[in-house]
């Protein structure tokens, strides 16, 4: 590890939310359905890590667990400026739930070493939002989740975190885990130099066996999908163009539907 602050950032590759997302018949995500991108929330995590490393020195390591092509998400983070990457890739990990994902990522993070772990607050594909807290518990770290602002002074981390109905100011001793909310820094765009440099940066791959993981994969998950069914899509109703009376016409519609 370098002097300064060594930061591990988790990034996940997800189906682009601008496209339709589908589940397979067994209730797992259809990862071939659309384009795969680095989750927007994780690109914000990378941005925060880069800013902190710029202020305090140190090194930014991006970590992902996912299929072969998830390495694209790592390259994107490297092009933004991260120093190195770790890719946990193994067919045996397919179908992992949050419990197993947090076990695997915790093992990977222990091999990397860190003063600070940064994650997104909620992946856009799984919607569980529980991996960060599970990781913090496994690694014995304080957790600061849904942060909208993060600063570090010595070994104390201060943050503003979103809570229901507003925000809270919190502090925690390092090492710690932070999950970022979308109300934090906008991610920088990789420039040409960054993209070229990323090609030469080290990406270490790890297997489940490398980390000594057992009971991996969907068959051993701590939770399982029982059934899954698509809902029929909504259809458009009537549409009018305002001729100066549309407000009154909406009121009529609401009255007919017994909504007022």
């Amino acid at each position: 590890m370098k002097p300064g602050m060594n930061i591990a950032v988790l990034v996940k590759q997800v189906p682009d939310t601008y496209a339709e997302r589908r589940l397979k018949d067994d209730g797992t995500l259809d990862r071939d359905a659309g384009e795969a991108v680095i989750d927007e929330i994780d690109s914000r995590g990378v941005e925060v890590a880069l800013q902190l490393a710029e202020q305090h020195g140190g090194e930014v390591t991006v970590v992902t667990m996912g299929p072969q092509r998830a390495t694209e998400a790592l390259r994107k983070a490297l092009a933004m400026g991260a120093d190195k990457a770790v890719h946990l890739v193994d067919d045996a990990l397919a179908g992992s739930d949050a419990w197993q994902t947090s076990a695997a990522l915790a093992a990977a993070l222990r091999t990397v070493g860190f003063d600070l772990v940064i994650t997104g607050n909620e992946a856009s594909d799984g919607m569980t939002g529980t991996v960060p807290a599970m990781l913090a518990e496994r690694l014995g770290l304080p957790q600061v989740t849904s942060a909208r602002k993060v600063t570090v002074d010595g070994t104390t981390l201060s943050a503003e975190k979103l809570i229901d109905g507003g925000y809270a100011e919190v502090t925690a001793p390092l090492p710690a885990l932070v999950s970022v909310s979308e109300k934090i820094a906008d991610p920088r765009y990789p420039n040409f130099k960054g993209i070229m440099a990323a090609k030469k940066k080290p990406v270490q791959t790890l297997s489940a066996a490398d980390l000594g993981l057992s009971n991996t994969g969907g068959a051993n998950a701590a939770s399982r999908v029982v059934s899954s069914a698509p809902k029929p899509p909504r259809e458009a109703g009537q549409k009018i163009t305002d001729d100066g009376t549309a407000g009154a016409k909406v009121a009529e519609f609401l009255a007919t539907e017994r909504l007022i």
Binding site: V225, S228, P230, K231
Partner: peptide, 14 residues
């Protein structure tokens, strides 16, 4: 799931 496009039932097994 996905903004109500799917209804999924799920169970904890551990």
């Amino acid at each position: 799931v996905f903004g109500g496009s799917y209804v999924v039932t799920s169970q904890v097994t551990q």
